[in-house]
Amino acid sequence: MRRQVLLGAAGVGALALLWEGYKLVAPDDGVVVGELTVLPRTNDIAMPHLWDMAARAFEPVNSATDALPLWVAVLVAAAFTLGVAAVGWVVGVVVGLGTATLMQRFRTAESALLPWVVLSQTVPLIALAPLVRRWGSQLEVGTFDWQDWMSVAVIASYLAFFPVSIGALRGLSSPDAVHLDLMRSYGVGWWRTYRSLRLPAAVPHLIPALRLAAANAVIGTVVAEVSIGLRGGIGRMIVEFGASASADPAKQWSPIFGAVLVGLVAAGVCALIARGLARYRVSEVS
């Protein structure tokens, strides 16, 4: 455990050293071969010093009198993005598991659905975002009002469900013949076999799928925030601060680190889930 923490810290330290080391050694305009820039510029606009980024994080967001410190604003935005991504992840996992279950249960469903599942991931996200938003805004169910953040969550779930459905399908089909024979000899139906055998047996295949889904949900949320134009999240903040990069180059790095933080928290939650399911991950016996 301690070793892991040390190694992690060493990795971050190495990255920081690389950044500052390159900035120190390379010329301001980058390494140019002929007309071609092969290594990036190192001036303060392109590559601000790490300590400048840190210092900027503790200054107010803007010149308004009641402005929050930048790092607080970034944390608030990161929490918002994380929340939307979490909703997208949960929806994606449920839909993915449902699809996989359907495909496992009915062979025809597998041949009918699987190509579409794969095809669905080839649709570019940016094409999808405005569509989802428009469809959502046309939705009227009683007092229920479709919000923009829901469109973002839908897009995140769209990216998250794919690895789950593929991983779960493999996992649900993974029980040994001897276990299936045993269940049959007990005369129990599909549902109990599913609950007592297929679902637990699927866990080793599900864990990596859940991780991938979490990463996809975070990326989907950040990108969809931008293409839908949802305010309050980290994606929109990166674009906004990037626009003023030439005047305040260190500022845009804070939301970028915020996005990294969202990813880390998502990965951490997945690690916790994996730990909770550790019992189902012991290797097959005899």
Binding site: D181, Y280, V285
Partner: peptide
Amino acid sequence: HDFGIAFQQAGLLPW
């Protein structure tokens, strides 16, 4: 459930 059955593999559920 008139019979019990055992196979060459013990077939215990590992979890």
